Simulated assay, not measured.
Amino acid sequence: MLPDTATLFPRNLLSGLVCAATLTFNAALAAEEDVLMHKDPNCGCCGQWAEHLRANGFSVKEIATREMDSIKRDAGVPPALASCHTARVGGYVVEGHVPADDIRRLLAERPSAIGISAPGMPLGSPGMEGAYPAESYQVISFDAEGKTQVFAEH
Rank of each mutant, 00 (worst) to 15 (best):
D101H: 07
G47K: 03
G146P: 03
Y92P: 02
I71A: 04
G120H: 07
A31W: 09
A28Y: 02
L23F: 15
P111C: 13
E33T: 11
G124Q: 09
Q138G: 09
V60D: 03
S125C: 03
V89I: 12
T86H: 07
H52N: 06
T148M: 11
R105C: 00
D102E: 12
D143C: 10
M1V: 09
A27Q: 03
V98I: 02
A131C: 02
R11I: 11
L2D: 11
C45D: 09
E109K: 06
L17I: 13
Q149A: 15
V139M: 04
A31M: 04
R105T: 12
V94S: 04
Y137M: 01
P78F: 05
S83F: 05
A118H: 01
E153V: 06
L36G: 01
G124R: 05
E62W: 09
L106A: 13
V150E: 12
A27F: 10
G146N: 10
G47W: 01
R73M: 06
F58S: 08
E32T: 11
K72P: 01
V94C: 03
G120V: 09
Y132T: 15
V98A: 04
G44E: 05
R104K: 14
I140P: 04
S70H: 10
D74L: 06
D34L: 12
G124M: 05
S70F: 02
Q149L: 00
L14G: 08
V60L: 10
S59N: 13
A27W: 06
G127D: 02
A144S: 15
F151R: 08
P122S: 13
K72A: 06
P122W: 07
A100E: 00
R54W: 02
G91W: 04
V139Q: 05
R54T: 13
A134V: 03
P111R: 06
G120W: 03
S141N: 08
A134Q: 03
A30Q: 13
K72S: 04
C19A: 15
D40A: 14
A131P: 01
I114W: 04
A21H: 01
A144H: 12
C84H: 10
D4I: 01
L23E: 05
C43D: 14
G47N: 03
A75F: 13
P10K: 02
S125F: 08
G146S: 06
G96P: 03
V89A: 07
C46T: 12
S117P: 00
L8F: 07
L106E: 07
L13C: 10
Y137N: 10
S117E: 00
A30N: 11
L13K: 15
V150R: 14
S59P: 00
D101C: 00
E145F: 10
G44F: 06
P10R: 05
G146W: 11
G124W: 04
R110K: 14
A64Y: 10
L2Y: 05
H85Q: 10
G96S: 06
E109C: 01
A87F: 06
T7S: 14
G76F: 08
R104G: 00
E62G: 08
A80E: 15
M128G: 08
F25C: 12
Y132M: 15
N42Y: 13
V60K: 10
T22S: 14
R88Q: 03
G96C: 12
I103G: 06
H85D: 05
I116Q: 08
P79T: 14
S15I: 04
